[in-house]
Design a protein around this nucleic acid. Structure first.
Lengths: 220, 220
DNA sequence: CTATTATTAGAGTATATACTCTAGGCAGTC
DNA sequence: GACTGCCTAGAGTATATACTCTAATAATAG
């Protein structure tokens, strides 16, 4: 593998594990057993590394959230979208952790992220539309649908922070993909009241698969 | 005012304005025109300052979220809770920005914050219970109520980050309390499907007061 | 083989950061 | 007036961090 790609890969790995704030360019170089000079030959600065990683993330999610225009949407599609979004969140989990700082230090990133968010919101909105078309949820006025989409986005992007900050376990490193995907339970909770009678049961069964197993309240 | 209190006040102000990550103890001392030595006479380290500020925040929110046991809850109560929580979020807005890092660097903070979150979730849950008792929302099974409470919490604690990262304006400093309180619109959106016919209109009118004024999509 | 270009090592640097240490001032008290 | 305890100044330090510079080594082209 090219050194350049190794830098991106190691950076992502280290950022995810220990947080962008705790990883310096020297750490990355040391981890790869290359010199700092070498790293800076491939990237002008740390921001450029992060920016490029973000673009990978962006492409991944854009790819997953490509909603078909020509056919109806199914419950399997919905599952796929949800699973994919949380997979993406997991693979690039360092990003949301220091989001505000990162956007403050890189105008390109701020602009791109804003557009990325808007695309995601639009995709969620379209999914809601198609779910209504498919008779899975009741159709709702556009105004409500937008607000609901935004709530879905807020729940999705905050679920990981909730797990890492409020969860019972002491070590923050203990987060797993399985736990993260329990966020799907929370997202489906938002949709419950809008489900059509025909689909209600099926969605409730799907939701149940992601129910968090409470680790707290151990017997005294 | 005592130097110690001035340090806490200035720290909070600077953290809120520029982010904890961008503010050093030397900055704080300089801002107060005192020596670093003086600052470190009053606080052992930066973490201690942050911890103490968190305790103020905690006390404030605990005070606001004291749900009366002896009487029914009204729509005015609900408004008060929502306004208060967003006021608190505003006054200590630096805190959620770097939450994960802060908790990683201070075990006391991690423990206290986890308990704080649980208290907030319990309070939201109780509010839902009392809203049902008051006939404002339909009663729901405990399991659903818990999941809804968690979603409310996720929306509340992520709303500010959304504004700061995804909003149209370029400068992140431009956030206002008014904008922040539009998060109430999002929270009330979650409750819409559960409203009783008697209260539906009143809540919808209340919600309308917080409707965001879209700054985007200006005429071309 | 030679010339050029791409890649790498590694020492080095300017700046920042959290924090320490010593000396001394100031208010109150006997 | 001397003593005491609280508070403050300010120079200083060890370490870290993002990044640079030079020289050398591969890789490639003619």
């Amino acid at each position: 593998m090219k050194t350049r790609d190794k830098i991106l890969l190691s950076s992502l790995e280290l950022f995810n594990e220990r947080g962008e704030r705790n990883i310096t360019t020297n750490h990355i170089a040391a981890h790869l057993a290359i010199s700092p000079g070498n790293l800076y030959y491939h990237f002008r600065n740390k921001s450029d590394i992060i920016y490029e990683i973000f673009q990978e993330y962006e492409n991944l999610v854009d790819y997953y959230l490509d909603i078909p225009e020509d056919r109806a949407i199914t419950l399997e599609d919905l599952t796929f979208y949800l699973e994919s979004v949380f997979d993406g969140l997991w693979s690039y989990r360092f990003f949301h952790r220091d989001l505000e700082y990162l956007l403050d230090s890189d105008p390109r990133l701020r602009r791109d992220y804003r557009e990325f968010t808007n695309r995601c919101l639009a995709a969620i909105n379209r999914i809601f539309g198609k779910l209504a078309e498919a008779g899975i949820i009741e159709p709702q006025p556009e105004e409500l649908r937008s607000a609901m989409s935004l709530n879905v986005w807020l729940v999705i992007t905050n679920w990981m922070a909730f797990l890492k900050t409020a969860h019972a376990s002491e070590e923050s490193a203990s987060l797993t993909l399985t736990e993260l995907k329990q966020g799907i339970y929370q997202v489906l909770t938002l949709e419950i009241p809008y489900l059509t009678p025909e689909y209600r049961e099926r969605v409730m069964v799907l939701r149940e698969k992601y129910r968090p197993v409470l680790p707290e309240a151990a017997p005294a």
